[in-house]
């Protein structure tokens, strides 16, 4: 089969481009350590979240030195807790599940973004920086009032976080 020399050159460039793209993504995984939402959590009974230790009264709790777990329930049409308050300069793992349909969990303008599928718990760990307020929105169509489903993720200073946690009686 005759292939023109220019076409062979282009074929080689194309394969290099593809390997470069795969290489970049691999670098992102091992360099900055970006991990994908995956199957680390066990499935959960979506209609009986009230019986779940973590999701009956979802909130933020400290799980290690400067490490926090934020449990979030998405529902038609909102997020609990709202706002989600987390401390600055810390490692926060979001555990997000749905008690009804499929939702999205997107902290607007950031890389924190995941699908929320009933029966599954999505986990994503992020490093927070300085105090800042972020918008939280559902980016998967979930019913007639989908556009009204929003919340906040407030990154606050350590001291403010501690006083808030105390104020909640926790």
């Amino acid at each position: 089969m005759h292939i023109h020399a220019y076409e062979k050159l282009w074929l080689a460039c194309s394969v290099l481009l593809i390997l470069f793209l795969i290489g970049t993504v691999t670098y992102g995984a091992v360099g900055p350590g970006i991990a994908m939402v995956a199957d680390s959590e066990q499935p959960i009974d979506a209609q009986n979240l009230d019986e779940s230790e973590r999701f009956a009264d979802p909130g933020v709790e400290q799980v290690g030195e400067n490490e926090y777990a934020a449990y979030v329930v998405a529902y038609q049409f909102g997020f609990t807790p709202d706002p989600i308050v987390v401390p600055a300069n810390s490692t926060v793992t979001f555990y997000v599940t749905s008690r009804d349909v499929t939702h999205g969990f997107e902290v607007a303008g950031t890389n924190a973004n995941t699908m929320v599928i009933p029966g599954e718990v999505a986990t994503l760990t992020v490093e927070t920086a300085e105090p800042q307020e972020y918008g939280l929105l559902c980016n998967e169509y979930c019913g007639a009032a989908h556009h009204a489903m929003e919340g906040k993720v407030n990154v606050v200073s350590q001291s403010e976080f501690e006083s808030r946690q105390g104020g909640d009686g926790e």
Binding site: F20, P32, A35, V107, V126, A129, Y134
Partner: peptide
């Protein structure tokens, strides 16, 4: 076209994506 693809990719991956807040690390 090849040059545009490579430059755009480098920009969007290394500057736009990796430069944003809340990089997911786990």
């Amino acid at each position: 076209y090849f040059a545009i693809l490579v430059l755009s990719w480098v920009y969007i991956y290394y500057i736009e994506f990796l430069g944003r807040d809340l990089v997911v690390v786990g």
